Simulated assay, not measured.
Amino acid sequence: MATEGPTIAAAERLLTVTELAGELGVTPRAIRFYEDKGLIDPARVGATRVYTPRERARMLLILRGKRLGFSLAEIKEFLDLYAVDPRHLEQKRALLAGVRKRVGELEDMRVSLERTLDELRAIAVQVEGEIAGEG
C-alpha cells in the first residue's frame, strides 16, 4: 500500500553537516558559523554533529532572514521568541516590526538609487553632447 508524503523516518532523519550544507546550498563552514553564533544547536553522536529537522528548519529561516537583509541579532531574536512563546504572537509582532523597518530601509535605498541613476544619466547625456560637439 502506497503512502503519501515523507515517512516518519525520513522526516526525523539526522543529517551530517555536509549533508545539511548540500541540501541548503551553503558550505559546512557557514553552518558552523551559525552554530558558533548560537543560532543552531546540533546534537552530537560521539564527536559528530548531527542536525535534526528542527535545526534544518532553523537554518532555512536563518538563510531567508539573511537574504531579506536582517542582521544575525534580529534573526536570533526571532528564533529565540519562537522557542518561548507557544502561540508565536511575540515572534510575529517582532517579525512584523522587523519587516516594516526593513521595507522602510529598502524604500530609502530605492530613493537614493533613483537619485544616483538620474545624476549618472544626466552626466552621460552631457558628456555625449560634448563628444558629439567636438566630433
Rank of each mutant, 00 (worst) to 15 (best):
residue 5 G to S: 13
residue 5 G to R: 12
residue 6 P to I: 07
residue 6 P to N: 15
residue 7 T to I: 09
residue 7 T to E: 08
residue 8 I to R: 11
residue 12 E to C: 04
residue 15 L to A: 05
residue 17 V to R: 02
residue 19 E to C: 00
residue 21 A to E: 07
residue 23 E to Y: 05
residue 23 E to T: 05
residue 23 E to H: 00
residue 23 E to V: 01
residue 24 L to V: 02
residue 26 V to P: 08
residue 26 V to M: 00
residue 26 V to C: 01
residue 26 V to R: 02
residue 27 T to P: 00
residue 27 T to W: 01
residue 27 T to F: 04
residue 28 P to V: 03
residue 29 R to D: 14
residue 31 I to W: 00
residue 31 I to R: 02
residue 32 R to Q: 13
residue 32 R to Y: 07
residue 32 R to D: 14
residue 34 Y to T: 11
residue 35 E to N: 10
residue 35 E to S: 10
residue 35 E to V: 02
residue 36 D to E: 13
residue 36 D to G: 08
residue 36 D to I: 02
residue 39 L to G: 04
residue 39 L to N: 08
residue 39 L to P: 04
residue 40 I to V: 02
residue 40 I to P: 04
residue 41 D to S: 04
residue 42 P to H: 01
residue 43 A to N: 04
residue 45 V to T: 02
residue 45 V to P: 03
residue 48 T to E: 09
residue 52 T to H: 01
residue 52 T to E: 10
residue 52 T to G: 07
residue 53 P to K: 04
residue 54 R to V: 08
residue 54 R to L: 09
residue 55 E to R: 07
residue 56 R to G: 10
residue 56 R to T: 10
residue 57 A to C: 12
residue 57 A to T: 09
residue 59 M to W: 04
residue 59 M to D: 12
residue 60 L to H: 11
residue 61 L to H: 11
residue 61 L to A: 10
residue 61 L to E: 12
residue 61 L to P: 09
residue 62 I to N: 11
residue 63 L to R: 13
residue 65 G to T: 09
residue 65 G to A: 02
residue 66 K to L: 08
residue 66 K to P: 11
residue 67 R to M: 05
residue 67 R to Q: 12
residue 67 R to W: 02
residue 69 G to I: 03
residue 70 F to Q: 12
residue 70 F to S: 11
residue 71 S to W: 08
residue 72 L to Q: 08
residue 73 A to H: 09
residue 74 E to R: 00
residue 79 L to E: 06
residue 80 D to P: 03
residue 80 D to Q: 04
residue 80 D to Y: 01
residue 81 L to C: 09
residue 81 L to K: 05
residue 83 A to D: 13
residue 84 V to G: 05
residue 89 L to N: 11
residue 89 L to T: 13
residue 89 L to S: 08
residue 90 E to A: 08
residue 90 E to I: 02
residue 91 Q to G: 12
residue 91 Q to S: 13
residue 94 A to G: 11
residue 94 A to Y: 03
residue 94 A to P: 13
residue 96 L to K: 15
residue 96 L to S: 15
residue 96 L to T: 15
residue 97 A to S: 15
residue 97 A to K: 11
residue 98 G to Q: 06
residue 99 V to P: 15
residue 99 V to T: 15
residue 100 R to F: 08
residue 101 K to W: 06
residue 101 K to R: 14
residue 103 V to Q: 15
residue 104 G to A: 14
residue 104 G to S: 12
residue 105 E to Y: 05
residue 106 L to N: 10
residue 106 L to A: 13
residue 107 E to N: 14
residue 111 V to K: 09
residue 112 S to D: 15
residue 112 S to L: 14
residue 114 E to N: 12
residue 114 E to K: 06
residue 115 R to D: 15
residue 115 R to I: 12
residue 115 R to C: 12
residue 117 L to W: 01
residue 117 L to Q: 07
residue 120 L to D: 07
residue 120 L to Y: 04
residue 120 L to F: 01
residue 120 L to N: 03
residue 120 L to A: 13
residue 120 L to W: 00
residue 121 R to P: 06
residue 121 R to L: 07
residue 121 R to N: 08
residue 122 A to F: 02
residue 124 A to R: 07
residue 126 Q to N: 05
residue 126 Q to Y: 00
residue 127 V to T: 07
residue 127 V to Y: 00
residue 130 E to L: 07
residue 130 E to C: 05
residue 131 I to A: 10
residue 131 I to V: 10
residue 131 I to W: 04
residue 134 E to P: 09
residue 134 E to N: 05
residue 134 E to V: 10
residue 135 G to W: 09
